[in-house]
Design a protein around this nucleic acid. Structure first.
Lengths: 124, 124
DNA sequence: CAGGATCCTTAGAGATACTG
DNA sequence: CAGTATCTCTAAGGATCCTG
């Protein structure tokens, strides 16, 4: 049985160190995901694809403006798929792209941990 | 062989859905972690405990003010441990608490994924 | 060395009203 | 229904100087 240093190997294997350099492009993406609403929208869509109005209700407290801009940047990042039906009234469905689902795989454990430990942290 | 819906079960098991309600305390923690510098400081400390000056250099681009306030909120959240030696000149060491290391366990995979896919996303 | 205290600037974010 | 267009404003963030 081989025991290795968990912390160091994690960083090495995950090649995380580059993030700390100012030029790393991941900083941009990190900002998008953590733009206050980014995580929540991704989590909502990870549960199931939804229409605009549904999302607005699912992600409590988000304004129309923020939902719009959040969805736009996530779509540009290739994480969210936007499908508009040219009907009247219009119907637009949002869902995660394969890339977005990949992200959800590592994002959900984080959000889950936070949700479970939030009360402990914030000390209600 | 039993096949289950990965997405739904993930959400259920992780009890992530509560995050979407406006009153959920996890939103506060989520904000702290994703406060532009929060993730980076946590990643830096996940690699190894560091002194103030080291952190300042490790997390490229962070200002003194932001490093100070980020460390303060993370300390209040119980994620970061601050150890000050009463020497002259002063020496202060920062490291992750057990809780912070737990968080790192789920945070590093996310950051790692983003780092590896950032160029694909941002489309350099 | 490790911060506090200040001042200043913007982008993020809210509210409201309007439209194809 | 699914947004866009404005307007406004706070608070995150940056730069600089100061100190035990």
């Amino acid at each position: 049985m081989t025991v290795i240093d968990t912390r160091v190997s994690l960083l090495d294997e995950l090649m995380v160190d580059g993030v700390l350099s100012a030029a790393c492009p991941s900083r941009v993406v990190l900002d998008h995901i953590s733009s206050k609403w980014g995580v929540l929208v991704l989590v909502a869509l990870a549960e199931r694809g939804q229409r605009w109005g549904e999302l607005r209700r699912t992600v409590e407290g988000i304004s129309e403006k923020m939902l719009a801009s959040t969805l736009r940047t996530l779509e540009q990042d290739g994480l969210v798929l936007r499908e508009a039906q040219p009907t009247i009234p219009p119907r637009v469905d949002y869902s995660l792209t394969p890339l977005g689902q990949e992200l959800a795989t590592v994002l959900l454990p984080l959000v889950g941990w936070v949700a479970r430990n939030a009360s402990r942290i914030v000390g209600d």
